[in-house]
Amino acid sequence: MSLAFLQPDKKVSYIRESLTDEERLGTPNTNFYQNGKRAALIVIDMQKGYISPEPKPWVRDLSPNIREITDTMVTNVQKLIKASRDSRIPILFTGDRYLPDGSDAGIRGEKFPQLSEYMRAGQKWVDIDPRVQPNDGEPIVWKQASSGFFGTHLTPMLIDRQIDTCILAGVATSGCVRATAVDAISSNFRTVVVEECVSDKNVWAHKASLFDIWRYIATVAPLEDVLSWLRNFSGSTEQD
């Protein structure tokens, strides 16, 4: 298998095209998400603490050009949000947020003391980045752990909206996006990660997780494919 997909400008979504015939035999169905009839867009952890350009007291950029990569990703998420709203696809946001006294940070607070110190209710870092601001009626699911599903009301909220398919965007690919993808598909929601709409502080970890998601967790698709799919079936997701 060619490792060309590890290059920054190559996509995991198109990995199949570079495979030999023999390799292709064992690849999964990467379009199964399009069997869904009612999709929701889940925008993961697009919070000031993780993506705003302003200097943060604790975050260091691990890969060069990470600012540029993040800003490109934000622009792509804006496109996906607009298309979802146009097609009346419900949008749900997730965010990391601890209580003002940090009393619910738990072990994660022991491993990441600064995370539990800055990502508390009332601090600006927990706010969703204004570039991808939720509209009225688009809930934010506040969580303490990586997955948007763990210890949250996300599943009942998807059931309430009769969702069968989750489209995932946000940060970080190898952290909360990946954990949410595992739980979404474990809960039997068709799940697709939109490649241009996720990013990570570490480009290598980003690629490795996308490969895993593409191969055996859920699936990964290019923004273009997801946008055209949304346009096609928008009629069936009209809210009552």
């Binding site: 738990g106 752990a145 009301h153």
Partner: peptide, 18 residues
């Protein structure tokens, strides 16, 4: 801590167990 919940049980859809 205050565990904010949306239904009857404080365990359902919350971070109570952790």
């Amino acid at each position: 801590p205050i565990i904010w919940k949306k239904v009857a049980s404080g365990f359902f859809g919350t971070y109570m167990v952790p």
